[in-house]
Simulated assay, not measured.
Amino acid sequence: MRAPLRDFGTAAPAVDRLDVLTGPVADALRHWSGSAPAERIAHVDTEPEWAETADFVVHYGRELLERSADCVVVAGRRGGVTTLAACVVLSTTRVDVNGVVRRRFDARKASFAAMDTAVGETGTEYGGITPIGLPAGWPVLVDPAVVDLPYVLVGSGRRCGKPLVPGEALAELPGAVTRPALGIA
């Protein structure tokens, strides 16, 4: 399989690379039910030291910045209740935590979840957080600009490797809701 965005050297359907993915991500791909078949999701091998988006695009090509999405875990709090959610925005933007996210959860306070919470609750490695395979019931807020991309690079759950996912498939993940202006410059 050739990677849909550029030549990464090693690319394969993600369903053929379940052994290099975290358990939750592999399970999500095994039980995939979106309109884009799981076989359209490619997995490319990448080096763990280049997992962070800024380092990734320097090493693999700046043109990938506009084809990459970041997934961050946020925490909304109100009345002693904390709600965790994932937010997916283009890597050229940042999540509007204090606007769109706070209002979506009717929270008094919203912030990025602590690293230990984010990786512990998602079962992923820091630098590889992904919207694929999140805990049941989690809201997944997706910026429409991500959905509009034919393919987008996201985290794989591990620092090595990245899936290339049709943007429309991210809007169909369990708990996914598109939120205009989620990603701000």
Rank of each mutant, 00 (worst) to 15 (best):
M1N: 11
A3Q: 14
L5E: 15
L5I: 15
F8C: 06
T10Y: 11
A11P: 10
A12H: 12
A12S: 14
A12V: 15
D16N: 11
R17S: 08
D19F: 06
V20P: 06
T22E: 05
G23H: 01
D27G: 07
D27L: 05
A28I: 12
L29N: 03
L29M: 10
R30Y: 06
W32V: 12
G34T: 11
S35N: 09
A36Q: 06
A36M: 06
P37W: 09
P37T: 05
A38S: 11
A38R: 09
I41A: 02
A42C: 08
H43Y: 15
V44N: 12
V44D: 11
T46F: 12
E47A: 13
E47K: 13
E47H: 14
W50V: 07
E52C: 04
E52I: 04
E52G: 10
A54I: 07
F56L: 15
V57W: 10
V57D: 03
V58D: 14
Y60F: 12
Y60V: 10
R62M: 11
R62F: 11
E63N: 13
S68N: 08
S68E: 09
S68C: 13
C71T: 15
C71V: 09
V73K: 03
G79L: 01
V81I: 03
V81K: 04
L84P: 01
A86W: 03
A86T: 00
C87N: 00
V89I: 05
T93M: 03
V95T: 08
D96Y: 06
V97F: 03
N98G: 01
R102F: 04
R102K: 14
R102H: 05
F105V: 07
D106N: 05
R108F: 04
R108N: 03
A110R: 00
S111R: 12
A114K: 08
D116Q: 11
T117W: 00
G120N: 02
E121K: 02
E121Y: 00
T124P: 00
T124C: 13
E125N: 02
Y126S: 01
T130D: 09
T130I: 06
T130R: 06
P131C: 11
I132Q: 06
G133F: 09
G133S: 06
G133D: 05
P135I: 03
A136G: 07
A136Y: 06
G137Q: 14
W138E: 11
V140M: 00
L141Q: 13
V142M: 09
D148E: 15
L149S: 13
P150T: 10
P150M: 07
V154F: 13
V154I: 15
C160W: 09
K162D: 09
P163N: 12
P163H: 10
P163A: 00
V165H: 13
P166T: 10
E168Q: 09
A169F: 08
A169H: 05
L170Y: 12
L170E: 01
A171C: 05
G175W: 08
A176E: 10
A176W: 07
A176K: 04
V177R: 04
P180Y: 02
A181I: 00
L182T: 05
G183D: 02
I184V: 14
